[in-house]
Nucleic acid binder design. Structure first.
Lengths: 119, 119
DNA sequence: TGAACATATGAACAATCATTCATATATGAC
DNA sequence: GTCATATATGAATGATTGTTCATATGTTCA
């Protein structure tokens, strides 16, 4: 498939730049997964849940209580976080404990905060 | 406002943990901005644009050509990226050049890739 | 001035998403 | 077994969002 140049015909970019971009750009599937991961971080409730779990393992109702939200809303979001492999859970009797399942999250958040606090 | 414990009454969390979370959790406004930033990263088109700009400054039609998308779609997304202060632009005659406006992006993407490639 | 070109933008539409509500599942106590 | 509790989940709803289409803005050149 040739790259169509829709709407303009300037094509200012150098051939070597095009090659560089295509070499550095991850595969379509990776890009999709990457965007999907950031989409998970793109919701205040989920960010709050993750910040809570930075401090300690918690059960669903603890998180709900801490954030002042319903058990259902938290449970739905924990499912999203679990599917993204960002949290894991273990059952202890009736209680389901959730905890972090990734060491990169804090780092990613810190970098995000750096951007926000810039300028 | 008291934190209501909706739907359950287990309250397993220790008082000291609650204090720790509240101490570590950024202010509501910061959390909102953080989620908003990641929301910007949460779209394949925008991720591709940023990867393209990692290589070099480019004009709108170059990016459109490179990604095989319409000028309008790219222009709309560049506006989102600009509002998030992730890209900047300069005009040269008829042509508008876009480039990165933040050094954290690459780092954040790399951390995201680390998570994806895990396990 | 007017034509050609590069980009921006508003409205519309389909798709996605977060929360709520009602209810189902799972465990422990009795 | 029944009851109470902790969590999960499906459907519904309102809100947000990415792209398209048509058109407007801004620049260069003749």
């Amino acid at each position: 498939m040739t790259e169509e140049n829709m709407g303009c015909s300037c094509n200012l970019i150098h051939e070597e730049i095009v090659d560089m971009v295509k070499k550095e750009m991850p595969a379509e599937e990776i890009l999709y997964d990457l965007a999907e991961l950031f989409k998970v971080f793109g919701d205040t409730t989920r960010v709050k849940i993750l910040y809570a779990l930075f401090a300690a393992e918690m059960c669903v109702c603890d998180i709900a209580s801490l954030l002042g939200m319903t058990q259902s809303a938290i449970s739905h979001q924990l499912r999203v976080l679990k599917q993204a492999r960002l949290v894991k859970n273990r059952r202890d009797g009736k209680v389901m404990y959730y905890s972090l399942d990734d060491e990169h999250i804090k780092h990613i958040f810190d970098q995000g905060l750096l951007h926000i606090n810039e300028k």
